[in-house]
């Protein structure tokens, strides 16, 4: 193997290492992205038909990834994408239009 070949191999390895560094950096940035979990206490939730209306109303909001309801506890869980938020005003408006009453809202950051 001549000297020029060794130089080009070295350059290739350097490029490969640099690429791996960039990829790992990107992955670490993604893994630290966080979705927000909102827990809504909703009054007036009394049967599965209610649940559908709540899911339909909140599910159409920008950034909402998932809406589930726990009828037993009167709780609606909303998962919102990174960088998006669900304000109390928005939640109250949608729930009122669906025919229910928002009692409280809490948010928790959830790492992916």
């Amino acid at each position: 193997m001549n000297k020029s070949n060794l130089v080009s191999l070295k350059s290739l390895l350097q490029g490969l290492l640099f690429s791996l560094f960039i990829i790992s950096l990107t992955l670490s940035t993604i893994s630290s992205a966080a979705e927000t979990h909102y827990q809504l206490q909703v009054n007036g939730l009394v049967c599965p038909f209610c649940e559908y209306n709540v899911q339909k109303k909140l599910g159409k909001l920008d950034g909402v990834l998932k809406v589930t309801a726990n009828l037993k506890d009167g709780v609606v869980n909303v998962l919102v994408a990174d960088g998006k938020t669900l304000s109390e005003k928005q939640a109250k408006k949608e729930l009122t239009e669906a025919g229910f009453t928002l009692k409280s809202i809490e948010s928790h950051q959830r790492k992916k």
């Binding site: 009054n43 007036g44 009167g74």
Partner: peptide
Amino acid sequence: LQHDERSKT
């Protein structure tokens, strides 16, 4: 008239 409570309406 609408009065909602937890799991009641």
